[in-house]
Design a protein around this nucleic acid. Structure first.
Lengths: 199, 199
DNA sequence: TACCTTTGTCTAACGGTGTTAAATTATTTT
DNA sequence: AAAATAATTTAACACCGTTAGACAAAGGTA
């Protein structure tokens, strides 16, 4: 007998086990260490079994990405209830987004293509030159009354974040128009420059 | 005979060839397709030879990263000369940074750990929900006179860029303090919200 | 019960990866 | 010409994603 539903449930369980085993491995050893054989080991099967549940490794990544987005949406939904004021809700949602990225780092990484690609890369003047050039210029336009290291750092990272963020978004997704990119970039740059000049 | 210098020069050439062969492959087929054997093919050697010049594959990535930073610094230096006004120089440098990212995309990707990780991921409500939630809230706080799709899009991407950028920077490098992160984030969020409300 | 079919699972293999040790060839030195 | 050194390759290891085929367990049917 072994009712059909029961069998289906077991299959669904295995599918779920594959996903959570994957996530476990990734949390422990990073995305680069995730392999079909390692997943199989963790669920006490051999590798080919996984192909009964996912057409290939990419399909697993896709599913985890989906799970990530759902979890993120949930967290944001939750955050929205913390406030009734729309601006407050917006802020709360962005904070939820931020917290999600650090609570579920591995999910965030696969969702948005963030890699810790290359090695340690110990501090080195060549690597820091672009940063220093920008930093010095920011210092230069900062009113003397505000010219502390902490202030300039903050402005530098604000700058860098928005520019790098916009670039990353464009390189991984390709859904923004050339025109809007230029506009966002220009707005951000002039906006931050003004905020520096005027405190 | 074959003077020592000559030999050294040939060795230096080979080292350089390895790097440019790598970059060629990456430009044509992406980082995931870069392999020691493919590099060797391109310079008419076998794979183990590469280990005479680089201790491993990561060392090649490291060197390319370094080249990227040097090139970026050069472009920024160049841009700085376009203006005499400090604010104008700062803006020009950020534009140079932006242009570098799209002119030398592959270099930028390895420098900052940007990956096109997972597959096509066709449009799907689950993926867009976080975006939609934020978008709707932005719409809500936008003064009616400004409430066009283009305007809201622009504000949304500004928001997303700075938040995602700051997160990415934190996930790949780890050089900012918890305290400053919070401050940059909070400043950016309230700043953008104000800019939305006041046009 | 005996047979057949279906299902689940594994073994073995292919071609690929980074990397290393040993064998081989070429070059230089004596 | 012989010996020593350098340059290069071959062969192998352990891993990877993926697929085809073998095998065993279970189910249905007569």
């Amino acid at each position: 007998m072994a009712s059909k539903d029961r069998i289906l449930k077991v299959k669904e369980d295995t599918r779920c086990n594959i996903l959570s085993a994957s996530l476990e491995i990734v949390k422990e050893e990073g995305w680069s260490a995730l392999s079909m054989r390692k997943i199989a080991d963790k669920i006490d099967y051999t590798a080919p079994i996984i192909y009964e549940y996912f057409s290939n490794k990419d399909a697993i990544l896709k599913e985890l990405t989906l799970m990530g987005f759902k979890k993120l949406a949930g967290k944001m939904e939750e955050a929205k209830t913390l406030s009734t004021d729309p601006a407050g809700q917006l802020e709360a949602m962005w904070l939820a987004y931020w917290n999600f990225a650090f609570a579920d780092t591995e999910l965030y990484k696969v969702m948005y293509g963030v890699e810790v690609n290359c090695c340690s890369m110990d501090v080195c003047p060549d690597l820091q030159k672009p940063m220093n050039m920008l930093w010095d210029k920011i210092e230069e336009i900062t009113p003397e009354a505000l010219r502390t290291e902490e202030y300039i750092d903050r402005k530098y990272y604000t700058f860098w974040s928005v520019v790098h963020g916009l670039i990353s978004i464009n390189l991984t997704r390709q859904l923004t128009s050339e025109e809007m990119n230029r506009q966002v970039l220009r707005d951000a740059i002039t906006g931050i420059i003004n905020s520096i000049k005027n405190g």
